[in-house]
Design a protein around this nucleic acid. Sequence first.
DNA 1: GAGTAGTGTTCAGCAGATTGAACACCCGAA
DNA 2: TTCGGGTGTTCAATCTGCTGAACACTACTC
Lengths: 264, 264
Amino acid sequence: MADSRSSRSEGLGASSPAPAVTRAAAVLEALAESPSGRLTLSDLSRELGIPKSSTSNLLLALEEARLITRQGADFALGRKLVELGAAYLSRLDEVQEFYKYCEQAPTLSGETVRIAMLDGDHVIYLARYEGHPAVRLTSNIGDKMPVSLCSVGKALLAQLHDHDIDSMFPDGMELPTMTANSLKTAEELKAEISTIRQQGYAFEDEESTVGVVCLAVPVPTHGAHGPSLGLSVTALKATYSEEQGALMVKELKELARSLGNPMG
Amino acid sequence: MADSRSSRSEGLGASSPAPAVTRAAAVLEALAESPSGRLTLSDLSRELGIPKSSTSNLLLALEEARLITRQGADFALGRKLVELGAAYLSRLDEVQEFYKYCEQAPTLSGETVRIAMLDGDHVIYLARYEGHPAVRLTSNIGDKMPVSLCSVGKALLAQLHDHDIDSMFPDGMELPTMTANSLKTAEELKAEISTIRQQGYAFEDEESTVGVVCLAVPVPTHGAHGPSLGLSVTALKATYSEEQGALMVKELKELARSLGNPMG
DNA sequence: GAGTAGTGTTCAGCAGATTGAACACCCGAA
DNA sequence: TTCGGGTGTTCAATCTGCTGAACACTACTC
């Protein structure tokens, strides 16, 4: 990837109120995005454009905080991040309620349900309820997915204003694809979004995984702040029927309404 | 290494190679440990002994990196931490292998099994396999537990050198308790540890939750680096039998051996 | 109203973190 | 052996991020 993200391309000229912190965050991100999850001091220094000596200082401080670990010559993410991530999730009441609802819902309790959050042009899965052992998801909690490739992503996009969508996906932009059914262009995505707005839920037909369909609804954002959440059910296309889909959408919407209501 | 817990106290007098980073990490930790998960700039400034203006800079940088979020006047942990935590877990091959093994193990496949990691005087749960819907655990992935209160914790302690245990739990120290059966003193814990060393596994009899028993084994640490991992099975005391326990310990040990072997 | 206690923000000056070249080290090739 | 390419570490000079008092603001109380 190298140049793709670069929050501050090259010398991070744009002033940060605490440059060391911004750089430390960049180090964590670089480690998270690295395929092997392990990088040497020199790798990081080169990739992020930070002098080696400074990088060394950052790494020492991060290591002391256990945000990263040293493994021989390599550095990798540290276990403290698991703690912090869990602390974040434990504060999301929505996740707790999500589990409770799924367990007692007539249709959903037997399905594979997930709750996800919008994060830029990706979606992060926050929790997963597995009522249907036949559908084994390869995705784990915390995993990221491009918005255009999953039903939750599209459902969450549909909630945004058009100008936000346009700035994220300017006309003519090509989208990442995973199957033959994946949406390929920004135009296709926008057409899909208007359909979603009309029918009130998103449908995904083998767009990320062959043989698998998904249904998703957004959780109405409560108040001003707080991230946008979405819910999805995953099913095998072979056994999926429209009536079943209707039932699932109904329950998803009910759960979404209850999550969106601050009074639980 | 020097003194590990110097970051606390007050003005973090010990010099860090990148003070801003060390302080930023302290901010994250403070937010994670705060009961409500939300603190104001002034709260943080006061609690960590950092001048308000500096704290403000740190918070701005952390917010830009999405490691924290602003919610009105309060600050809370940010969603990027979920991503980073997930990235850490996805790199732990042990977790993937753990799931695979549990699914096909004759006895364990029907039980609730967890894999955990030693982190100071606590244990962090990394993953959970749920083969037994009757046992609903309240703990989530990433949650922390005092070592003395769970079987995995004790199993992992038993692997440490005596002098390390002594420095963590000096004689006379009182331990946190959750039920009437919880170990209460450092002496009790050390006696338990020698039992564990003899029999090769740890047993927990309603020490953290009434009605629940646990069995745990450590994963032999492969090579020098890498964290200490442990495995545990949770069962209802009402339905637990010694023969079943023997079977589960056998499979746990087999899984532990395979995880400890770098060749998978 | 004025008063009080809390919030977060500003800015000039100085303490100090950042820097890059030089250093020490390890490994494999010639 | 000596070389070359790779690693991470050191340190004094410099430039910059940190500081603290003063500020602006809101929300209460009286």
